Computed example of a mutant assay.
Amino acid sequence: MKVEARDVVVSLSGRPVLTGVDLEVRSGEVLGLLGPNGSGKSTLLRTIYRAIRPDGGAVEVGGLDVWSSTTREVARRCAVLTQDHATEVELSVLDLVLLGRIPHRTLLRRSDRDDEALARECLDRVDAAHLENRMLPTLSGGERQRVLLARALAQQPKVLLLDEPTNHLDIAHQLELLSLVRRLGVTAVIALHDLTLAAAYCDRLALLDQGRLVAAGPPEEVLTPDRVRDVYGVACDVLVHPRTGRLLLALDLAASPAKESTA
Rank of each mutant, 00 (worst) to 15 (best):
D65M: 04
D230N: 12
V97F: 01
A258G: 03
V214Q: 07
V8K: 02
K41I: 00
R110K: 00
A86M: 07
L239E: 15
E90W: 01
E29L: 00
A172L: 14
I171V: 15
G14V: 00
H241F: 01
V25T: 03
D95P: 04
S42E: 02
L148F: 15
G233K: 12
G56W: 07
R146W: 11
V89M: 11
H85K: 13
A79P: 06
A129F: 09
R113S: 12
L18P: 00
L169E: 10
L108S: 13
P257D: 10
V61A: 09
L99Y: 02
L197F: 06
A235S: 15
R182I: 03
L178E: 11
G40F: 03
Q83Y: 09
R53Q: 10
S13Y: 09
K2W: 04
C78I: 14
D252T: 02
H85S: 15
W67H: 11
N37G: 00
L149F: 05
S140G: 07
R243H: 08
E176Y: 06
L205N: 12
D209I: 09
A206G: 01
R144H: 13
M135F: 15
T166I: 08
G14A: 10
L248A: 12
M135V: 05
L98E: 03
S69D: 12
V147C: 11
